[in-house]
Simulated scan of single mutants.
Amino acid sequence: MDKFENLQTNNEKQHYIPMEVTAETIKDFGINPADVVWTRIGNKPKKVVMIPVTEEQYKAYMRPLWREDKRQQRQEPPVSLDKMYEETEYEVADTDSDLEADVMKKMLIDELHKALDELEEIDRTIMEMYSNNHSEAEIGQAIGMSQKGVNKRKHKVLLKLNTRLKDFR
């Protein structure tokens, strides 16, 4: 049984369709607030008054909704990963890429991260701010050092990191 149909006592179906109402329409048209019910129209709950209609009117109202339901039921199921894999065309990898170079780069980056983790907190702060394009004066203000002191410390850290990465290569 459809949500807009009700059975009368004489076994004849009485059909209803919802008419959306607002507080203004209830007041303006003198609709009894007890007749107002909540129902879903589409995906949204709405305040409606159920209007009795003929079977033809009911079918005319419901036909597009039924058609949409059928269309959704007939829709192709979501694509499976296997099907997508079978139907996908693959591009040939760049011949310029060098797997060994990529692995070495990854190893160097990992080693750099380890070296940065071993630095003193102040040196890590300097390097982090430097990598975010802060000036030496801004870095000095943030950590309580002069610009020249930041410069010296930054160069020591860069030399230390460079030496460690050279040894790693």
Rank of each mutant, 00 (worst) to 15 (best):
A60V: 06
V21L: 06
P18R: 03
S97R: 14
V53L: 04
V49G: 01
A23D: 09
V79I: 15
Q72V: 14
E86I: 12
M107H: 09
D94E: 10
M104V: 03
L65K: 14
T22M: 03
P77D: 14
P45N: 07
E76G: 07
L108H: 11
K83A: 15
R74Y: 15
D98T: 05
V92L: 10
V36W: 03
D98S: 11
D35P: 00
A101W: 09
R40F: 09
M50G: 01
T22A: 02
K83V: 14
A101E: 12
V53H: 03
V53I: 02
V92Y: 04
A23I: 04
E100V: 13
Y90K: 13
E87A: 13
S97N: 10
K46S: 06
V79K: 14
P45V: 05
R74C: 13
I17G: 06
N43K: 10
E86H: 08
E91G: 08
H15M: 06
Y16E: 01
V79P: 03
Y58M: 05
K27F: 03
D82W: 13
E55F: 00
E56C: 00
M50T: 04
K105L: 13
A101F: 11
I31D: 04
Y61D: 03
K106A: 12
V36H: 07
E76D: 12
T95D: 09
E100W: 11
R67I: 13
Y58H: 12
I41K: 05
Q75N: 14
W66N: 14
P64G: 08
P78G: 05
D28M: 12
P18V: 04
D94W: 01
P18F: 05
Y61P: 03
D82T: 15
V21Q: 03
K47G: 00
N43W: 04
Q14P: 00
N32H: 06
R63W: 09
Y90Q: 12
H15L: 02
E20A: 08
Q14W: 00
P52T: 06
K106I: 05
E24I: 02
N32T: 08
K106H: 08
E56M: 07
A23P: 01
I51Y: 02
V48S: 01
E89A: 08
T95A: 08
E76K: 15
A34L: 09
D35A: 07
Y85P: 00
M62H: 04
V36S: 03
R67E: 13
D98M: 06
M19A: 02
D35W: 06
Q72E: 14
I17R: 02
A93V: 05
K105Q: 10
